[in-house]
Design a protein around this nucleic acid. Structure first.
Lengths: 159, 159
DNA sequence: CACATTAGTAAGCATCCGCATATCATCTGC
DNA sequence: GCAGATGATATGCGGATGCTTACTAATGTG
């Protein structure tokens, strides 16, 4: 058994192709890939500071500054000093930012839906559920070779 | 509907984590990521020349040369001029190459199995089937926005 | 035989990435 | 109030990537 291909071997070209499809959409709306990721992280409000943002989107905190500068200059986000800790900058997505994010997202997901429509429904549903479950896993759970903990990736049992 | 995340948003960190898990294994066996991909492409014998190889693994043909040099120097592949077209080099994986490829692959897939074991079986099966189907699609089918053709990704109906 | 084409190779360039370092302002603990 | 830690920022290094150009050897075409 296990005569299948490695996951990365299949995921890599898939991701490449998806990104290639996204790039023109992003360019048409004047945002970069990182910019789009930033808007996404800010949209749900779970991220406030830049350090938290970098952590959330898996980017280097020194590398997102230019992205934030541009987003701010375009009026898609605001960066205001935290009155409680004036070292930190509170990041907020503006209405225009939400609008851009929504437009890009709609186009990207419409494209993805057309792609997913080519899969059998059962596989498609399983694919999305599995992907979401894997996405929720902390990075170390995937990276570490000592997967001694066999907690299911779905329905995590807290505590 | 479609309140889900973008595919790339979920695939990107997943791939990053998988690669991070693979790197130590590859290093332990003295092959690079591209080297491993080359061995994989050569293993099934569908690729003979360097140009075909570059095409197969989605790499630049000028960039794989160093990889091939190293694989050849390590004795994992052979590069012999094609007697019928002495411009071309016939690539062959050696027994030792097969062995290294097999070892690395076993380790990587064992790790992947442990990861996939955390998913519900139905989702896992659908995930793998969908991934394989998407992997079989030609790149343009994913990239192009004009997905006028709605052929299912599974059971392709040839002509 | 002259010409265009192709496979492999080498080299250069612009970009991006992760990582490390340094600076400055600010906060926190003692 | 001072020392140490922290957030944001700027900068530079090394590595990898995609893209382009150029050169060679060999093939094929007229």
């Amino acid at each position: 058994m296990t005569s299948r291909r490695d996951l990365a071997e299949m995921l890599y070209p898939l991701l490449q192709s998806l990104i290639a499809a996204e790039v023109p959409v992003l360019a048409a709306h004047g945002v970069s890939m990182w910019g789009y990721a930033v808007l996404g992280a800010l949209e749900d409000g779970s991220v406030r500071t830049q350090a938290a943002l970098a952590e959330a989107i898996g980017a280097d905190k020194t590398r997102i500054i230019g992205t934030l500068d541009k987003l701010q200059a375009t009026g898609l986000i605001t960066r205001t000093p935290d009155p409680r800790d004036r070292r930190a900058r509170i990041l907020t997505i503006t209405d225009e930012g939400r609008e851009v994010r929504g437009s890009v997202r709609a186009e990207i997901q419409a494209h993805e839906e057309r792609l997913l429509a080519r899969l059998p429904e059962a596989d498609r549903d399983g694919f999305l559920r599995a992907l979401e479950a894997l996405h929720r896993l902390p990075r170390e759970d995937i990276t570490d070779r000592s997967s001694l903990d066999r907690r299911p990736a779905h329905r995590s049992n807290p505590a």
